[in-house]
Amino acid sequence: MKSRRNVSSRKSILSWVLGLLGLGALSTAYIDPGSGSFIIQAAVAAILGSVLLIRAFWKQIVAMFSRKPKSPEDETPPATPSG
């Protein structure tokens, strides 16, 4: 397991370094991405990315205000005096 993790982390470092260098030479992309498509893609990715971010942020806020009770005793509703 350890050796696998090492290989994996070495690969991540490699991809990070290649990314930093721009990886122009090593890329094997061969299709035409099409003029204008990257502009739309970048805009759509930015919009959808923001939506995801807002959603995650909202979930955290909701979670903060709807903390579940710690023990089953807390769930018992306060006894109402009879009569």
Binding site: S15, G19, L23, L26, P33, Q41, A42
Partner: peptide, 14 residues
């Protein structure tokens, strides 16, 4: 292909 940070998805239009 190994991803390059910041580069858009080349296959998006396809």
């Amino acid at each position: 292909e190994i991803a390059v940070e910041g580069r858009p998805w080349v296959a998006y239009r396809q």
